[in-house]
Design a protein around this nucleic acid. Structure first.
Length: 164
DNA sequence: AATCGTCGTTCTT
DNA sequence: AAGAACGACGATT
């Protein structure tokens, strides 16, 4: 797994690439910046994926819909998790779904709580828009990267619900 | 506010 | 290999 740092206006994200594509994306840690040396030689392909990732990330952080994504490596997830993550990918910017709606959309209407778990296990936040999933009634719900991030992202998309 | 139903994942035997 | 525990939930009381 090659890791690369991506500098944005919101801090330094860390991207992890497998041989398949982008496998994980970490929020800025705030503290120690991982300086791990690449364990694979830098190739033209990785550089291309990194450019795509950087562009897509910055667009997404600005509340825009990325015009292109790098290949994603979701192979680490279970079948169920990949279903959920794919469902998340077609929630358009500026729109939100409830956990229940996501559960229904993947034909497992009873697996509401399991959907929440799967969202939390999303390895590529922001790009895979897990922040667009709210609890019922427009409640903010939770977020693995911290609720401040969830609110910030939704706010930039103009989809931040009125806090009740 | 407290409790229960639900279900995939993870942690313990 | 089971079984118990645990959630970024939702519905009921």
């Amino acid at each position: 797994m090659n890791t690369a740092l991506i500098q944005t206006a919101d801090g330094i994200f860390t991207a992890h690439f497998s041989g398949i594509g982008l496998a994980a994306l970490d929020f800025p840690s705030g503290k120690t910046v991982s300086r791990a040396a690449p364990d694979e030689p830098s190739s033209a392909q990785f550089n291309s994926w990194l450019r795509l990732t950087e562009r897509a990330l910055k667009q997404a952080l600005a509340g825009e819909t990325p015009d292109a994504l790098p290949p994603l490596d979701l192979s680490a997830g279970t079948e169920f998790q990949r279903c959920v993550w794919n469902a998340l990918r077609n929630i358009p910017s500026g729109r939100t779904r409830s956990y229940k709606e996501v559960a229904q959309s993947i034909k497992r209407p009873g697996a509401v709580r399991a959907v929440g778990q799967a969202c939390g296990a999303n390895p590529i936040p922001v790009v895979i828009p897990c922040h667009r999933v709210l609890a019922a009634g427009g409640k903010i719900g939770g977020f693995s990267g911290g609720l401040d991030w969830k609110r910030k992202l939704l706010s930039r998309e103009g989809a931040l619900p009125d806090s009740d």
